[in-house]
Amino acid sequence: MRNPLNKTITSIKPSGIRKFFDIVAEMPDAISLGVGEPDFDTPWKVRDEAIYSLERGRTFYTSNSGLKELRIEIADFLERHYGLHYNPLTEMLMTVGGSEGIDVALRAMLDPGDEVLIPQPSYVSYEPCTILAGGVPVAINLKEENEFRLKPEELEAAITDKTKILIMPFPNNPTGAVMEKADLEPIVELVKKYDLFVLTDEIYGELTYTGEGHVSIASFPGMKERTIYINGFSKSHAMTGWRLGYVCAPAEIVQQMTKIHQFAIMCAPTTSQYAAVTAIRDCDEDVANMREEYNDRRRYLVNRFKKMGIKCFEPYGAFYIFPSIAEFGMSSEEFCTRLLKEKEVAVVPGTAFGESGEGNVRISYAYSLEALKKAMDRIEEFIKELRK
């Protein structure tokens, strides 16, 4: 019988995050710190608006680009928070989560053989989406001694005449690394020098814990026309299951992205879009409260690892911490497997996010402080046993 499967698809490995998630599902007493999903309920006013929209029978398709009212609200949000100026009618597309935005942007922009620079460790979708779009992923291995920030010399060394897109995954999943204004300035100059485009994934932008706050690379002079800006509601507004994201980009890019979205998806979920109008217009305080709670958890984990003598740089974004386990002389996969088996705590191997993640594990603090304390007690026991 003829092979029914596409060779490119079968060559792509499944997500390393889900492997441990599936195992934990069969362990009733295990504590999972593996999934990057807020433990907060979506703000009530957002859920209430969704219920109201259903009661009013608003279950029809929206335009392919999304509700006009929502796009206008997003444009206002981006201007007041990040100083970004986008035309909501021609430079914005509502997507099924930020993940669809990444996929559609790469498919709209890449020709076969175009290279995409991917700073790693980073989110698991960038590399396979590049391959599926016919591009060639090129990893830039970030270093822990640089707090996993992208350095200009690392970027310039990776650029070739085939390079088309630089992915900027900050604030970063899995490391929690951020890029401040001073970090971005030399990157911007190189992007212009080599005439690159930037896909900036800023889904964790609202979850930044520096005094400066989040700075978007799209806000620099001359960058809007060469930047595809990805964001959404999953992390900042605790709306993972609502599956709603958005892309902002030059009109000619959005036009082609919308074409792909039109044939593959039609439109983002209607109920989610109505709810998101309320989320982005009326929930700044809710987001601030969640960010403060995450910050408390972040500081707790940093201090616990410091007391354990575990090497761990301080993350200033997202809701992840990326401690080093190199001292124990085992792979991150082996460390996580043993921790789950012996102490029933699930964390994610650093290699799930690229080979440069070896020697580290990702721990999510999108869990209650009570759950974190219980899990950290078990991790401390495990580490003491390894050091004997």
Rank of each mutant, 00 (worst) to 15 (best):
R2I: 05
N3H: 11
K7V: 11
T8Y: 02
I9R: 08
R18S: 10
I23A: 06
M27I: 15
M27S: 08
L33W: 03
G34W: 05
G34V: 09
P38H: 14
D39M: 12
D39W: 09
W44K: 15
W44Y: 14
E49A: 13
E55L: 14
G57K: 03
T59G: 05
S63K: 15
S65N: 03
L67Y: 07
K68M: 12
E69G: 03
L70V: 06
I72P: 05
I74L: 12
F77I: 01
E79I: 00
L84V: 12
H85V: 14
Y86T: 14
Y86M: 11
L89S: 10
E100Y: 12
G101V: 00
D103T: 10
A105E: 11
L106Y: 00
L106N: 04
L110C: 13
V116S: 14
L117W: 03
P119E: 03
P119Y: 14
T130V: 08
V136W: 12
V138A: 02
E147C: 08
P152W: 08
P152C: 02
L155A: 04
A157K: 12
A158D: 12
T163R: 07
I167F: 00
M168D: 12
M168V: 15
V178K: 05
K181V: 04
A182Y: 05
E185Q: 13
V188Y: 04
E189I: 11
L190E: 13
T200E: 14
T200Y: 10
D201G: 04
E202A: 15
I203F: 07
L207M: 13
M223C: 03
R226W: 06
I228Q: 01
I230C: 00
Y246G: 08
V247P: 02
C248Y: 11
A249L: 10
I253L: 09
V254C: 15
Q255L: 01
T258I: 12
I260R: 04
F263M: 06
F263G: 09
C267E: 11
A268E: 11
P269R: 09
T270W: 03
T270M: 05
T271S: 00
T271D: 06
Q273S: 11
V277C: 15
A279M: 07
R281Y: 02
D282I: 13
C283T: 10
E285T: 14
D286V: 09
N289S: 12
M290W: 04
E292H: 05
E293W: 06
R299A: 06
L301S: 01
V302G: 08
R304S: 05
K306Y: 05
K306M: 02
K307Y: 03
F319I: 03
Y320Q: 14
Y320V: 14
A326S: 15
G329D: 03
S331L: 15
C336R: 07
L340I: 05
K341G: 00
E344P: 07
E344M: 09
V345G: 01
A346E: 13
V348L: 07
V348F: 00
P349E: 00
G350P: 11
A352L: 08
F353M: 02
F353Y: 15
E355Y: 04
E358L: 07
V361K: 02
I363N: 05
Y365D: 01
K374N: 04
D377T: 11
D377I: 04
E380N: 06
F382K: 10
I383K: 06
I383G: 03
E385T: 11
R387W: 01
R387Y: 01
